[in-house]
């Protein structure tokens, strides 16, 4: 464990808290992409299969929180707050993301075992899972401030993992090119969003695309 990874994980927790807080206080999931949320649940379920055969207090607890909160968000979106979700603006074609991640996972896993292939699939899928959400924001041209805080916190999580990987490489405990490439791609996808977030939201203005 190092400070970057811990901070990254905390940002991840904060993003989930912001998302659930937004939905339960406003009793609405408007502006949130159901498709991105469904992809995240798929990411967590396929990556954290090792809950069944490994236990570490910190990691196992976080894994259960991520799977559980993700399932809870989907429950809110399909149950109580379903009327506030507009599928007409959530139209990103996720089959290409799932298909692409599946192909990469089958071609280049570290080992050809079901658990390793699913783990690799989850790494690639996570790197692009935010795209339906960003696409939705782009389509509507604006987002609620709370939604932008959520996207920022989620992006900051993977961005903070990059210095963590550099640190682990330098202390030579860890060198996983797959995670690193996917993590960098994931952070790059957020870069436009980060820029607008810094220049607009943090100066107290509304998130609106130029």
């Amino acid at each position: 464990m190092n400070i970057f990874r811990l901070a990254g994980d905390l940002f991840h927790l904060i993003s989930i808290f912001i998302l659930i807080h937004k939905m339960t206080t406003s009793k609405s999931c408007s502006g949130i992409s159901f498709k991105s949320q469904a992809l995240y649940l798929l990411v967590y379920v396929t990556r954290y299969l090792d809950l069944f055969w490994t236990f570490a207090l910190y990691n196992s607890t976080m894994k259960i929180i991520f799977i559980g909160s993700s399932a809870y968000v989907l429950h809110l979106m399909t149950g109580p707050f379903k009327p506030t979700h507009d599928p007409n603006i959530d139209t990103f074609k996720v089959r290409y993301l799932i298909g692409g991640a599946a192909i990469l996972a089958l071609l280049f896993p570290y080992k050809w075992t079901p658990a390793e292939v699913l783990w690799t699939f989850s790494i690639w899928l996570e790197s692009v899972a935010i795209l339906p959400q960003l696409f939705m924001v782009q389509r509507t041209g604006a987002a609620e401030t709370i939604t932008t805080h959520y996207i920022f916190a989620l992006g900051a999580y993977r961005a903070l993992y990059i210095p963590n990987w550099i640190y682990r490489y330098l202390t030579s405990t860890f060198w996983d090119p797959l995670s690193i490439i996917a993590g960098v791609i994931q952070t790059v996808l957020y870069s436009d969003f980060f820029y607008i977030y810094y220049t607009k939201v943090l100066q107290g203005r509304k998130f609106e695309l130029p």
Partner: peptide, 10 residues
């Protein structure tokens, strides 16, 4: 250590 992922991250 390439490809030896200890799977100790989230």
């Amino acid at each position: 250590k390439v490809g030896v992922n200890p799977k100790d991250e989230l």
